[in-house]
């Protein structure tokens, strides 16, 4: 038994230390928002955060995340209303939707550090995430929209402090 901290909760999984985090999350904990796409770190469908960094959970061993904070799409926001999730709806990004958990998690790790990314920075950060429906331009627009919302929120927070 290994205890993992996932989305703020300590959860026990029956998994060998060297087994992929992806399958522990999906099949044991039945949190299926994180997807299996390639098993080789080539597509990004399985992206989760470990201590805030985007990682491919199919290439991350369970033993390597013990004592660290794992966040999945289910834990990105309490009510599914992270600025990126709202932007994904506003821009009507998903088609089949299968890769989109990974896309959102990958994008969230960018915006956490840089809430004013250029298009080039977005492409560089997102290029490892495949979308077979080819929703790339809407993904870019949604990231820009979410970044804008986060900046606005940050600015108004600053203003409130100033007054």
């Amino acid at each position: 038994m290994v205890t993992l901290n996932i989305n703020g909760r300590n959860l026990s999984v029956e998994a060998a230390n060297d087994s992929p985090l992806l399958w522990a999350i999906r099949e044991q904990l039945q949190m299926t928002g994180t997807k299996f796409g390639c098993g080789a770190g080539l597509c990004g469908a399985c992206t989760v955060h470990v201590n805030g960094e985007a990682v491919r959970s199919c290439q991350t061993a369970v033993g390597d995340v013990v004592g660290k904070k794992v966040t999945t799409i289910e834990g990105l926001s309490a009510k599914g209303d992270h600025p990126l999730q709202k932007a994904w709806v506003a821009e009507q990004v998903p088609q089949c939707g299968y890769c989109q958990s990974g896309q959102i998690m990958q994008a969230a790790s960018l915006l956490a550090k840089n809430n004013n990314p250029t298009k080039e920075e977005i492409v560089a950060h997102m290029d490892g995430n495949l979308c077979r429906c080819m929703t790339y331009s809407r993904i870019q627009k949604a990231i820009m929209r979410a970044a804008n919302e986060m900046r606005t929120a940050a600015n108004s927070a600053t203003e409130r402090r100033a007054t």
Binding site: Q30, T72, Q92, V93, G97
Partner: peptide, 23 residues
């Protein structure tokens, strides 16, 4: 009219169920 697609919100929360998610 471009009404919002009904399947999209679940697909932004990891909540849509695909075949691979069946338990």
């Amino acid at each position: 009219f471009s009404v919002p697609q009904l399947d999209i919100p679940d697909k932004t929360r990891g909540a849509a169920k695909y075949g691979i998610d069946v338990m």
